[in-house]
Design a protein around this nucleic acid. Structure first.
Lengths: 100, 100
DNA sequence: ATCGTATATCGTCGATATACGATGAAAGGT
DNA sequence: ACCTTTCATCGTATATCGACGATATACGAT
């Protein structure tokens, strides 16, 4: 059971921006970060970072929880793993409809 | 030597559209297709398909050659392989700055 | 109650993306 | 020479993205 093509496109689009890639790397390194910390590691306004996080959240690439007055975003490794595998299969799938 | 973050974003953006994902799958299955054939497998105008192919070409995800009056686009498996690997590393890279 | 901190959302605006039809170039066939 | 096929590019209309500042919300501290 793979992702449908629309869902794949949403996830890929969520990653298709340098700022969001940086955020994802940061999350991968620290597992979870609050927004203020991510604002510190990028040179973007807080509202812009929140917007990027919303994009990642909608694509299910991160988890979200609040703790006290802070919001914590955590990387969703399962989804990354699946996306990576599907990308790998995508270009290897050279034999649909033939016998090799 | 990995791709820089801008290049990663360009490649991911090139894949972040259902029509281009379908085109890529078609190319993966048949290795190479001419434009007319790809127009037949999508429900888009020929000019739109050409535009999508240009996007994939700029991201180095496909090769291009002309043969007779046709243009052939071929999947670049090397680039897909690298992108897939980097995506895989991205979310696994939990240990930058520690010893594990 | 008020203040300060952390975050989300809104409104705006320029830039980019996406779709189409029209047009033109290249090459093959008659 | 002329027509057809195949494709790229241009022009245009519309939608979405990406950035910011301003504002709203939530909550802990004083």
């Amino acid at each position: 059971m793979g992702l449908d093509i629309e869902n794949q496109a949403v996830k890929l689009a969520a990653l298709a921006h340098p700022a969001r890639l940086k955020i994802v790397r940061q999350l991968a390194n620290e597992n979870a970060c609050c927004v203020k910390h991510l604002v510190g590691t990028t040179d973007l306004a807080q509202s812009t970072v929140s917007q990027h996080l919303k994009t990642l959240l909608k694509a299910d690439l991160v988890f979200y929880r609040t703790e006290k007055q802070a919001s914590w975003y955590e990387i969703n490794r399962e989804e990354f793993s699946q996306l990576s595998k599907e990308l790998d299969l995508m270009f290897k799938d050279c034999c649909k409809g033939c016998d090799c």
